[in-house]
Simulated assay, not measured.
Amino acid sequence: MKTDWNTDQYLQFEDLRTRPAYELLNRVAIDQSKKVVDLGCGPGNSTELLRARFPSAVISGVDSSPKMLDEARKRLPHVTFSLDDIATWKPEEKADVIFANASLQWVTGHSDLFPRLMQCLNTGGILAVQMPDNLSEPTHALMRETASEGPWAEKLSEAVKSRETIGSSADYYNWLADQSEVIDIWRTSYEHVLADAGAIVDWVKSTGLRPFLGPLNDQERQSYLEHYLGKIKQAYRPLKDGRVLLTFPRLFIVAQRKL
Rank of each mutant, 00 (worst) to 15 (best):
P211W: 03
L259Q: 08
A235D: 11
P211M: 07
L209Q: 08
S111P: 01
L127Q: 04
T146F: 01
G230Q: 09
Q234D: 13
E158T: 02
A52M: 12
P215W: 06
Q130F: 01
M118G: 06
T80K: 12
V28H: 06
Q179D: 15
L156V: 08
P138F: 04
K94Q: 13
N174T: 13
Q12N: 15
L216D: 08
R51Q: 14
F13M: 07
S169G: 09
S168C: 08
Y173I: 06
W152I: 07
F248A: 13
N134W: 04
A57W: 03
R53D: 09
S148P: 00
L104T: 02
R17F: 07
P138A: 09
G44A: 03
E154H: 12
D133H: 10
V36S: 02
L213S: 05
Y224H: 06
K233Y: 02
A141V: 15
A52T: 10
D63M: 01
E181S: 15
D38T: 06
W175V: 12
I232D: 12
R250D: 07
R19A: 12
E93G: 01
I98E: 03
V193I: 13
P215N: 10
Q234A: 13
H110G: 14
K34P: 00
L113E: 00
S136Q: 13
A52C: 03
S60G: 05
E164Q: 15
R75N: 01
L11R: 14
T108E: 15
V58H: 13
A197P: 08
I98Y: 00
T247M: 06
T188R: 07
V62D: 04
A95G: 11
A100R: 04
I59E: 07
K258Y: 13
T123M: 12
S136C: 08
G242F: 12
D8T: 13
G125F: 09
S189V: 12
Y224C: 00
Q9A: 15
A153F: 03
L121Q: 09
Y228M: 07
G198L: 10
T80W: 00
Q105V: 02
L176T: 09
L49R: 02
L194M: 13
D15C: 02
Y190D: 14
N134V: 04
K67C: 05
N45Q: 07
F81P: 00
T207S: 15
